[in-house]
Structure formats: C-alpha cells, structure tokens
Design a protein around this nucleic acid. Structure first.
Lengths: 141, 141
DNA sequence: TAAAAATAGTTAGCTAGACAACTAAAAATA
DNA sequence: TATTTTTAGTTGTCTAGCTAACTATTTTTA
C-alpha cells in the first residue's frame, strides 16, 4: 500500500508543509511564496550575494533561482544590481520594503514551524534529520 | 541555518527522491514520470476506478489528476471511458501496453526504492513514518 | 596574446501542484 | 415534479522545478 511507503509520506509531508505555510501567509495577506521567503532569507544573511550562492544554499538550479529572484525584485523586496568586479554576476541586497517584510514575517514563519513540530521531542527532531540525511546520501552515490 | 531545518530537509529529500527516480527511468528510456507511475499503479490496483478515487489515494486535487490521467491516456497506457452508471464519472483501466509497462517497471521501481532505503533498519523506517505522520497531523488541525 | 574552456545568468519548454471558475450530470429537497 | 444543491471532471492561470540551449563575460591554456 502506497500510504505505507516512506517516499510517499516524505513527499506528502513536504506538500502539506508548503500548503499550510502558504495558507497562513495568504491569511495574513502577504504576497510571497514560501520558496521566495527562503530566497529572501539567504540574501538577508548574505548581503551582495549572487544567484549561484543562493542555489547552493537552497540546492536549486539556476533557472529556478533566476525566476524567484526576479519575482522578489519585481515585488520590490530586493535590489538587483550588476556586480562591479564581475559583470556576469548580480549583486543582491534587501530593500527597505524587504527589511520590513522580513521583520513582520519572522514571527509568522516561526509560528508555522512550531505548528508542525509541536510535540516532537528533541530526540525525534534529531532522529528524523539523521534518517533523511541517510536517504539523501544513499541517493547521491 | 537552513540546513538544520526539518522542513527544508523533508522538502529536499522529496526532491532528491523524485530526481533520482526520474533519472533511473530516463536511463531506461521509459517515457513516464514518477507521479504518472503512481497514478498508473492506483488504476492497476483498482480497475474501472474514477479520478476522484485516485485523488483520494494520492492526496492530490482534481485538476492534477485530470491532467496526469490525460497524459497516461495520450501515451496509451490506460483506457479512459465514460462510466455507464454515472456519466459524470470516467472509468479507467490499464491497456495492454500499460500492463507491459507495469511488468517491466516493477523491478526498476523496486531498485529505486531500495537504493534510498539501504541501511535503514526496520525500526528507523517505522520511526520516520510515525514522525512524518505526527507532523502531518499537527498541520491538519 | 589569441583561441578555448569555464562561469553566471537568462530564456524556452515541459510537468506537477494549487486555486478559481466553469460545464454537465446526478441527487436532494421543497 | 421542478428547483436547488452536490458531484465529477475540465480549463485557465500562476509558481516551482527540471533539462537544454543560449548569451555574455571571465579565466585558462596553447
């Protein structure tokens, strides 16, 4: 049975997380996707980063990052300029509007995180991460 | 740090599973996606099923199922007819070509499954499923 | 230094997933 | 029985993710 399949449960949990998170953001009238939020965060933690770096952090490919960055730029949350040292690269930083958004979103995101993880012991948290890591390593090689 | 985030690891693992699986299928020259394979399997286990049933099994919405079913039909793996008892419903069954595909794919899919789960003890398998289930339940309510 | 290779990013084309709005048929109800 | 409501499925629109192919720089190397 498919519901007893680990892959299926991993994939289903991932979808439910995204869906729940997106609903919460929508209910707050916030115009950003969960994935865009992750990109915004990498930029916030690494001002003047380029897109390759974001891709490495989030383990996503170039076109995906490129489009999400463009969305964030279009929405005015980031500033995208060309790097002075290497004109192939872009230099990304957070706009004032983006800073405000991050500030407002922080507690909401934390709420989403806690909602899913409630009643999960520290041991369980560690355990699931270690098992997921094992699966990933198995598939890498 | 994002890499220490359970949500991120769940989502990343899900992506790596799909990606690995898709690569294996491609390497065998098989023209089907992992998701389409799941749909095909539900139909195989429940001949003359309709799309609502597939959606319930796979926890996906109607448009998603509708489009995947159309792909499978277009590729000739299934036969899609209108239900005689209720003309709103479709009646789906596996074609000869589909039967052959399922037969050939069985060991390949099993190989994909085993690859990711190698060195996972029975206890770990049970444990991760129970934790994932807990997270899902947390988000449902 | 001129040609080749590597790198950063974009564009195009596809599937899946989510939401909203729709059609057509069946079931409920007044 | 006529009308309303529910149900099954489709279509449209958007984002993310993946591959492949492309442009434009920068770096290597012959």
């Amino acid at each position: 049975m498919i519901h007893n399949n680990i892959y299926f449960q991993i994939e289903l949990t991932a979808r439910k997380i995204r869906q729940y998170g997106q609903n919460v953001l929508r209910s707050h009238g916030i115009d950003i996707t969960i994935e865009q939020w992750l990109v915004l965060n990498v930029i916030n933690d690494n001002e003047t980063t380029n897109q390759i770096f974001i891709g490495e952090k989030l383990v996503k490919d170039k076109p995906t990052i490129s489009r999400m960055v463009n969305q964030l730029d279009k929405k005015g949350f980031i500033i995208k300029t060309s790097s002075s040292s290497d004109s192939r690269q872009v230099s990304l930083s957070i706009s004032k509007k983006g800073k405000t958004l991050i500030h407002n979103l922080q507690p909401i995101i934390e709420g989403i995180r806690l909602k899913g993880l409630q009643e999960l012991s520290e041991k369980e948290s560690q355990h699931i991460k270690s098992i997921l890591n094992k699966i990933q390593k198995n598939l890498d090689t």
